[in-house]
Every structure is written in C-alpha cells, then in structure tokens.
C-alpha cells in the first residue's frame, strides 16, 4: 500500500454538504486503514468511485461518524459499508435495509468518545432527517489490531460487495426518482 498516497488522498466531500442540492445517492465507506479488517469499508469504496452511475457520490469516512448525520441530511438514499464483529465467519456479508425498521440492536455499539454509524442512523431517525433509503453492508472481520493488511477472507468479500452495491444502484436510484416525483406531485 502506498502510505503517502493514502495519507493525502481527499477522503471526504464537505462541499457536498454545504448548501449544495440534494444528492440522489451517497455511498459511504467507513473504516480505518491502519486496523486490519476495519479497512474493508474504505477498500470497497476506493474501487467503486469510478464505477458508480451519475447521481451517486462516494465518501470515505475515517473518523468522526457524526458526519454521517450531515451526509444523511443532504441525500435521498445512503448506502454504508462498514466492518462488523460477529460470531459469523470472517468475510460474511450482511445487508440490512433500515429506513423503515430500526437498526438491529446488535448493530448498536457503545463508545465513550464518539458515536457509531448505527447510532448516527437512529439519531437521524429521531430528528426526522433519515433519507428515504438507508442500506448498510456489514462485512465480518476477524483481525482488528494495528496492521495495514486485511485478512484474505475479508479481501475476497471486497469485490463481492462492490458488485452488490452496483446491482443495488438501479433499484435505489429508481426509488429516489419515484420519491421525488411523489414529492413534486404533492406540492
């Protein structure tokens, strides 16, 4: 991995949240590239940026996840990709749609220092700023110590998730278009 390049590649798009028009679809890769399998969300996203259709933006999120609240306020649909801890085998992929149902309780973790992505979703729901579509991809990891390398099983899941997200895009985008038409006809 080219550490210098990784350290200086822009990883977030703040301009997208500063008064610009709503983005139809936002895909967020969440992770820490220094902590083994925790990098999987970023790895998925880095291979997706040039493959997503018009109307979708990709955002890497490596730190404070309250930023997700900003992203959710400025998009019609959001897809999050994150590493998860589970008793399932490493590389297992979970796909959860949470726009209508609460994030499963086991998704919500607890920390003294910031909020996690599942909490950000529920916070947005409580504040009435949840997008119409919220999809979470969780990839089970097994190695979260400080290392720049992911486990082979998790590496294998990366391209599968990318393909799944790309195949989701038609449905998600058409849902956004339908939603916008409804909003317009209601006015």
């Amino acid at each position: 991995m080219d550490r210098k390049r990784q350290a200086t590649t822009p990883v977030s798009s703040s301009a997208a949240c500063q008064g610009a028009e709503r983005i139809p679809v936002t895909i967020v890769g969440i992770g820490n590239e220094f902590r083994g399998d925790d990098a999987v969300g970023l790895a998925v996203l880095r291979g997706l940026a040039k493959r997503v259709p018009a109307g979708a933006r990709t955002v890497e999120l490596t730190g404070d996840q309250t930023y997700l609240l900003e992203l959710m306020r400025s998009t019609d649909a959001i897809i999050m990709v994150d590493a998860v801890q589970s008793s399932a085998p490493a590389g297992t992929i979970f796909r959860v749609e949470v726009s209508e149902e609460p994030v499963p309780k086991d998704f919500i973790s607890f920390t003294t220092h910031t909020i996690d992505s599942a909490t950000a979703v529920e916070l947005a729901r409580a504040l009435g700023s949840l997008p119409g579509s919220v999809l979470i991809y969780g990839i089970v990891g097994k190695e979260f110590s400080f290392t720049p390398n992911m486990s082979p099983e998790v590496e294998e899941a990366v391209e599968i998730v990318r393909e799944r997200i790309l195949s989701d895009m038609d449905t998600v985008l058409s849902g956004v278009i339908q939603g916008r038409k409804r909003d317009t006809s209601d006015m």
Partner: peptide, 18 residues
C-alpha cells in the same frame, strides 16, 4: 479509547452471502 477504530459489534441473522 476508541479513537482509532470504529467497527460494529454484530450477532444477528440476516441475509448472508459468502
């Protein structure tokens, strides 16, 4: 405590692709 990591604890049954 957690400033350099952020992954979720998860133990639920959902659609699984391996």
């Amino acid at each position: 405590i957690s400033c350099a990591t952020h992954f979720l604890k998860l133990d639920i049954s959902e659609e699984t692709v391996t």
